[in-house]
């Protein structure tokens, strides 16, 4: 079976200074699996998710490669068709639930946008479905919440609303852009469990962007590790965690805080490993120019 999302040899540069942002990235996501996209700030994980969703800023130019959703190449599609495809088949769970809801629109209206746009539902039918969706993400008194404005809800509630909205159209592909970073640790866990449950129920493919390896270990089936826009290591979660082959992966794993073993303390990544990664990236760039 061919994967649902295939990114092949995707490269992108900054429009301003032509510096590479993505270096020949390939990754494949099968239906019904969660693919962790891991890296530190500036590794390009957000850029990849934005390219997939067609919301990449004007400062990023895709220079080569393809992003295929089924048989459609998102990089080369006409804007209008791309908008329809993304709107009807994909969804985004954003990073910050506090800014991702329109302060001037009622929860119910924002929740049911996609249903009215892509499921051909009238206002009444969409509203009824919205109630079910809220109920499904364990929001109490959905009737009341539908009529509220975002500022009435807590951050955790808002993230639940956003998750409900993302699953509203039963998307084939879901991009979760660090969906728990802005939440309290206690809420984080609930939201992750919720996400995992809905994903399993709907058989949705998920690209899960994060810098938190602990989160990856909890929910991801496969992992791609990025450094400066280049794939460092890729594989199943099991392989990555049990038998990491790249020095960077091993260093990252070693640097994760050990809640079970406080005596281990915090181990910052060795400068030598970072230097080796930089050298690898430089070598790649050199090969590109030659």
């Amino acid at each position: 079976m061919s994967p649902l999302l295939s990114i092949d040899n995707l490269s992108a540069v900054s429009r301003r200074d032509g510096k590479p942002i993505l270096r020949n990235v390939s990754l494949h996501v099968d239906s019904g699996t969660i693919h962790g996209l891991v890296g530190e700030s500036g590794a390009g994980k957000s850029t990849i998710s934005k390219i997939i969703l067609g919301i990449v800023s004007g400062g990023v130019v895709v220079t080569s490669g393809s992003v295929m959703l089924g048989a459609n190449d998102l990089v080369r599609m006409p804007e209008r068709e791309k908008r329809v495809l993304i709107g009807s088949q994909m969804a985004l769970i954003p990073q910050d639930p506090l800014t991702a809801l329109n302060p001037g629109r009622r929860i119910g209206d924002q929740l049911t946008d996609s249903l009215r746009m892509w499921k051909g539902m009238g206002h009444k039918a969409a509203w009824a479905r919205g109630l079910e969706l809220l109920d499904h993400v364990a929001i109490r008194d959905p009737q009341r919440v539908m009529g509220l404005f975002p500022h009435h809800l807590s951050g955790g509630m808002r993230q639940r609303v956003l998750i409900a909205a993302a699953f509203a159209i039963e998307p084939k592909l879901l991009i979760a852009d660090e969906p728990t970073t802005a939440l309290d640790a206690t809420v984080q866990k609930q939201v992750l469990q919720l996400l995992k449950r809905l994903q399993a129920e709907h058989g949705t493919a998920v690209v899960f962007v994060t810098h938190d390896l602990g989160v990856v270990a909890q929910i991801c089936d496969a992992v791609t590790l990025l450094f400066q826009g280049k794939v460092m290591e890729q594989g199943t979660a099991e392989t990555i965690f049990n038998t990491p082959s790249h020095a960077y992966t091993r260093a990252l794993l070693a640097a994760s805080p050990r809640y079970d073993d406080p005596a281990a303390g915090l181990n910052p990544i060795d400068d030598a490993v970072i230097a080796a990664c930089r050298a690898e990236v430089a070598q790649f760039d050199g090969a590109q120019h030659a």
């Binding site: 985004l92 329109n102 302060p103 746009m117």
Partner: peptide, 23 residues
């Protein structure tokens, strides 16, 4: 961010302006 999210939902640019940003 809410406009970006609405864009992902597939709203046209004009609709983003009128129904998301305008209010």
């Amino acid at each position: 961010d809410y406009v970006t999210l609405a864009r992902v939902k597939g709203m046209s640019e004009l609709r983003l302006i009128l129904s998301e940003a305008m209010r």
